[in-house]
Amino acid sequence: MSATTTRPQTRKVVPAKGDRPVAVASHGALVLWCVLVIAPMLWTLLSSFKTSGEIFASPFGLPAEWSFTNYANAWVDSGLGDAFINTVIVVGTALVLVMLLGSMCAYVLGRFEFFGRRAIYYLMLAGLTFPVFLAIVPLFFVLQNLGLLGTLPGLIVTYVSFALPFTVFFLYSFFRGLPVEISEAAAIDGAGEWRTFFQVMLPMARPGMASVAIFNFLGLWNQFLLPVALNTDRDNWVLAQVLASFISSAGYAVDFGAMFAAAVVTIVPVLVAYIVFQRQLQGSVSQGTMK
């Protein structure tokens, strides 16, 4: 993994003949791609400041007035504010829980030999490949029987359960890779299994935990099917559901400006998180592929 960062790139190089066209073409293609990526996002941002009339008038026109009315409308009237808070609560809690439970489970599976270990591992692996659709209907009734249907705890526990296989799968190999001497040293020092895990192993797993946490955050924040199908109480809606309601919007007074604003509000937190953590994320991807 270190190869990525330590490759010497400092030597000054004189461009060779025939290199320039290649470089130009490369840049051309990449710039075009970046425009293709950024333009729709900028357009969305721009449109979020327009009134509906302006939106319909021209795709390019600038808003007559740069006001946050659309944002206020989306935030309050469309329930985006509540949904934002719900999403933060659900994703935050689920993230902490799944990281905790996932690392615990991965640690046990990865570092202890016992009967059925393999079976559990493969079962988790299988859980990764089933289409969620298949589970939705029975899951609905499972939650209902537990009295958790349409509640935030119900959604959290579902998120945790469905994020678990991925978390375990990833951290499993990470814990396996940690040197065995350390836990043994801890054992000799008289630390019990609990303390060994929380005070020795978990801190050592931090880099792996960070990568998984980022992926889980993105995955949970972008979660769609589970909340749409299982989180029926409007008061408990998460962001994806509010966005979905703009699309179907059966029966709501429509507000196109607010729809763009809602999209922006949904995107910005993940985008900011990405930009802040992008080094970490890229590091973790290389880490995975270099293993």
Binding site: L149, V228, A229, L230, T232, Q241, S245, S249
Partner: peptide, 9 residues
């Protein structure tokens, strides 16, 4: 459209 959850209910 999307509000399937409600239909489920």
């Amino acid at each position: 459209s999307l509000p399937l959850g409600v239909t489920l209910a």
